[in-house]
């Protein structure tokens, strides 16, 4: 493809230097790409790319390590916060963050997440909540809304059969080791900007030794939800956001 020349005054947004130039495996319409972009920007702007270690999860985000030009460790399913603890404890001066989905963090990894938070580990957690297991083909997650159809709740999530969805971010706010919990989204430009500021704050907290920070990003899974990207965004606004309300849940100033 021929290089298109863009005049500097017309440049609105450029690929972050740390975002690698390879084809992403994510489905069209997926928000992982946008969130990767934000992390790459924050790491670059904070000048941390030589001192940053990311921990990727099991789930669609497992290949996060293919896209951001930093050192990565791929964790077993749900164990990212324990892996991050191990790294941060032997490298307290480094930036250590995890990137996890709702199945990874709030189902199989609940124990590791809560205890890393309770200990006040100086790490940042980026938590992608799309209320479904994406990589394994759209099964119910702990975050799946009541009535929502998935591969393992084909008639809709019924609380008598499947229990209720829960908000791990709200639960984490009660822990003394936690300094910052926020719920964001990236479905509109204004939300993208807010989400970036939140990620930046979480990274700054980790570097300043303020404790455990978590940025939940309410996201879509248009493949799993069986909706077009546009319809998935609309469905998220109408169904997810009333339950998973956006905004800061905890922000300890000092």
């Amino acid at each position: 493809m021929a290089e298109v020349e863009i005049k500097q005054e017309n440049l609105v947004h450029a690929r972050p230097k740390l975002l690698r130039d390879n084809l992403m495996h994510y489905c069209p319409g997926c928000s992982h790409g946008t969130i990767h972009n934000l992390i790459a920007e924050v790491v670059e702007e904070m000048g941390l790319d030589g001192d940053c270690i990311g921990i990727s999860p099991v789930g669609c985000g497992v290949f996060a390590y293919n896209y951001i030009e930093i050192d990565w460790v791929e964790a077993a399913h749900g164990r990212a916060c324990a892996v991050a603890t191990g790294i941060k404890r032997v490298h307290p001066e480094k930036m250590v963050f995890t990137y996890q989905g709702d199945g990874d963090l709030s189902a199989i990894g609940t124990c590791e997440t809560i205890h890393a938070a309770a200990r006040g580990e100086n790490i940042a957690v980026i938590y992608i909540n799309n209320a479904i297991y994406g990589m394994t083909g759209g099964q119910m997650a702990p975050t799946t809304l009541l009535g929502m159809k998935t591969a393992t709740t084909p008639y809709g999530r019924d609380p008598r059969l499947n229990g209720y969805p829960y908000k791990i971010s709200d639960m984490l706010c009660h822990l003394d080791g936690v300094c910052y919990v926020t719920r964001q989204s990236v479905h509109k430009p204004a939300n993208v900007r807010k989400c970036k500021a939140a990620i930046r704050k979480a990274f700054e907290n980790a570097m300043a030794g303020k404790g455990f920070s978590l940025v939940e990003v309410v996201s879509t899974c248009n493949s799993g939800w069986k909706l077009s990207p546009v319809a998935a965004n609309k469905w998220m606004e109408e169904n997810m956001l009333p339950f998973y309300q956006l905004g800061d849940l905890k922000d300890v100033k000092e």
Binding site: V73, R79, A82, V83, T85, G86, H115
Partner: peptide, 18 residues
Amino acid sequence: QAESEVASINMVYGAAAT
């Protein structure tokens, strides 16, 4: 002191990875 053996071995995994 970790919260479980599962966490301990994964802390080992993380620190060993460095």
